[in-house]
């Protein structure tokens, strides 16, 4: 059986770990609140932007832009760019693992892939596994800002415009609710008409006709960067929320586990202490008895 001081020091160390996990839990929950607020703020812009692009498709069927798939004569894409959003730190359950797994599944399908990784954890993972990534692409997953999203969008668009990549896809985590988040893939560029157009859309609303100023192509080429950076911002915020949520769940179970271990250790500590006391009493009383007997015998 372990001795008293050993058990005591284990209790102290578990208590300290418990303090840390508890603090991390609280930090994550406040960060999650903030991220959720940001997410709600960006939603209206995003939905409306999607709506407007849909409407432009409805009214103008022959939009020609480098950002769209041509309706016919589509060339197979060669180089795919993947924007993978991971966390900066671990300790978030299976959050990072899920993203990386999904990314690996997707990338298997293509020959040439360019990897843009957000978050330190993902970057380190790819370094370790000798998977080439874009090294100059250094963005943190912490506290997403519009500014950062704009920069990322700019980098991706530059590559796209220069023809170095043919398709841009994003892999991010979507927080569906408090319990669930899933890893999602979004084909960012070029646009497919289909996701924007459902069959009912195509039938209804055709009567509204717009004039475009200066021209359809001009309008589209101007809003695409805004749409892309808007989408990336949304994906960053969404992933950040999912990360905080995953960390909260992980820390919550760590807390529960710590409490259980502490309960067992305290029980053990008390037992050890009690048996030590019992032993001491036995020794003392046995010693006293022996003294008494010795004194009796001496008389």
């Amino acid at each position: 059986m372990a001795n008293v001081s050993d058990t005591k020091s284990r209790i102290v160390s578990v208590e300290n770990t418990h303090k840390i996990t508890n603090a991390m839990y609280l930090i994550s929950s406040t960060k999650l609140q903030k991220a959720k607020q940001n997410l709600n703020k960006t939603r209206p812009f995003f939905q409306m932007m999607e709506n407007e692009i849909k409407r432009i498709f409805q009214t103008e069927t022959d939009v020609r832009s480098r950002y769209f798939y041509p309706e016919t004569g589509r060339k197979p894409a060669e180089t795919y760019a993947y924007l993978v959003i991971t966390a900066d730190k671990g300790l978030a359950g299976s959050y990072n693992y899920n993203v990386i797994k999904q990314a690996a599944l997707e990338m298997e399908k293509h020959k040439k892939v360019k990897l843009y990784v957000v978050g330190e954890y993902g970057r380190r993972y790819y370094y370790k596994h000798n998977i080439p990534i874009e090294h100059s692409f250094l963005y943190t997953a912490q506290n997403p800002t519009m500014h950062r999203a704009r920069e990322i969008a700019h980098i991706l668009l530059t590559e796209y415009d220069a023809g170095r990549v043919d398709e841009i896809r994003v892999i991010y985590s979507d927080m569906e609710n408090e319990l669930n988040s899933t890893v999602k893939r979004m084909n960012l560029l070029p646009f497919e008409r289909k996701p924007f157009l459902t069959p009912e859309d195509e039938r209804s609303g055709r009567d509204v006709h717009y004039q475009f100023y200066p021209s359809v192509t001009e309008v589209i080429n101007n809003i695409i960067p805004a749409y892309i950076s808007g989408f990336i911002y949304g994906a960053l915020v969404d992933s950040f929320s999912a990360e905080q949520n995953a960390r909260m769940t992980a820390m919550d179970s760590a807390n529960k586990n710590a409490q259980e271990i502490l309960g067992n250790l305290r029980l053990q500590y008390n037992r050890v202490r009690q048996s030590a006391i019992t032993r001491e009493i036995t020794e003392i009383s046995a010693g006293a008895k022996a003294q008494k007997n010795a004194r009796k015998g001496g008389r």
Partner: peptide
């Protein structure tokens, strides 16, 4: 104003 979509700079 008539229905229109305008690009903003």
């Amino acid at each position: 104003h008539e229905n229109m979509v305008v690009s903003v700079a």
